[in-house]
Design a protein around this nucleic acid. Structure first.
Lengths: 235, 235
DNA sequence: TAAAAAAAGTGAGTTATATCAATTTTTATA
DNA sequence: TATAAAAATTGATATAACTCACTTTTTTTA
């Protein structure tokens, strides 16, 4: 049985249901007609929580973290978005300010789509409408799942789980036999797992000692996914 | 300044944006034409996680907990829904099984609305469509908020916060000066906060000792909401 | 490529919270 | 209303995870 069979990635990841995939060309045209692309450098912020939204963003290429910052300035990553995904539509649809911030994890090309074009596309397209309802509902399920994770799983279990999820996102040009290199800072990994950097580092050392992962500088390579599933104690 | 000003309840509660409020009568007619009401006794389950959805539910009267159960059988409450709210639409919209379970917290009257009627109402009604998009996006913001809470706040802080949120839900026939009685089992409160029952009890005793809350049997009465906000250490 | 800066890693001490065991109080039932 | 059952409460102990202080390695920049 494949890893996907044992570990249903769609229950852990919004992105597995893309909003734009197979969208009629006419809808895409409305959406993309006036888009403007921009290259963001590593760490650069796309939008900040609480700001008023003037459009949505499309990740033409790269990776983006969505996060919230608490009173003490600590970051909590809610989601890592990948190439091909949309950002910032929640704020437009809920007629509210951005509920979270977004910053790029690596140099990325991001397209800006004006609010008016997005709203027109929704008005014109039943498909986009249904797709959005489906995606948002799916996101609810995934987020509810994450919530349960945070409430009930140990830091160790959460780290194992997130390594599996994040590894999937770093499968660019993946070929069987080729190792997947997770190129994420310990700080970001920590704020994804919801713990301090030191704990992530310590536990990674343990995983390394038992041969479950390997590191190349800051890069993490998972050697034994099944063992991670075991550690995560997932059903 | 009112409590709502200091503590923006819409950031904590899905229900503050009702799907059905002010919906055109014609839409409500499609939705409610074939509904069937049923009285559920305290603790009774409405639907279970993983089951195939055949419709949605409307809480005509009562309170419902939405929750997930982990491998060890521990419950995690995701949300407490109140009179007037809809349940179970995520599963229909995401074309998937129920992502969570629902059970009534007190004797409740629940109406069942067949899947076909819900889908037809969506097809017929642009208003309902937009309302759903708005609600789902708002739910995302609230759930993202909860996630951050779980990741970054202590059990003590979370308990204080949930007491404020839950108190709002027990404001039935509220009149100024009248105390609001939170009639929720310690077990449910614990699984809402994400901790063990014993911890909730212990902390409630502390809150009682400092005069912040009072208990009447199992019922909890908040005497000092501002103090709870302080304990929660909220912005 | 050397120097500076940033990030990663290690160790020790502390604390919040989980867990186990038992008692008391409240609520439901006969 | 007595009795049983369920829920709430208290206490003691164990431990996972946090925090602080510091060193080493890696990455960036000049």
């Amino acid at each position: 049985m494949s890893i996907k069979g044992i570990f249903p990635i769609d229950k852990w990841d919004f992105g597995s249901e893309s909003i734009l995939a197979d969208l009629p060309l006419s809808d895409l045209e409305i959406l993309m007609s006036r888009k403007s692309e921009q290259v963001y450098k590593k760490g650069q912020v796309i939008f900040r929580e609480g700001a008023y939204p003037s459009g949505i963003y499309y990740i033409a290429n790269g990776k983006v973290k969505k996060y919230k910052v608490d009173a003490e300035g600590r970051e909590q990553i809610i989601y890592v978005a990948n190439t091909g995904e949309l950002l910032g539509y929640h704020a437009i649809l809920s007629v509210d300010n951005y509920p979270d911030s977004a910053a790029v994890l690596e140099e990325s090309t991001i397209a800006f789509i004006p609010k008016e074009d997005f709203l027109e596309a929704i008005n014109q397209s039943g498909v986009l409408n249904r797709r959005l309802l489906k995606t948002l509902s799916h996101e609810f399920a995934v987020l509810a799942n994450s919530l349960t994770l945070f409430a009930q799983k140990s830091v160790r279990e959460r780290l194992a789980l997130q390594l599996i999820v994040v590894r999937e996102k770093y499968k660019v040009n993946f070929e069987p036999g080729m190792p997947v290199e997770i190129n994420m800072s310990r700080d970001d990994l920590a704020s994804l797992v919801g713990t301090a950097r030191e704990n992530v580092v310590r536990m990674l050392s343990e995983f390394k000692a038992e041969g479950t992962v390997e590191t190349k500088g800051r890069k993490i390579i998972v050697l034994d996914v099944k063992r991670l599933i075991e550690i995560a104690n997932y059903r």
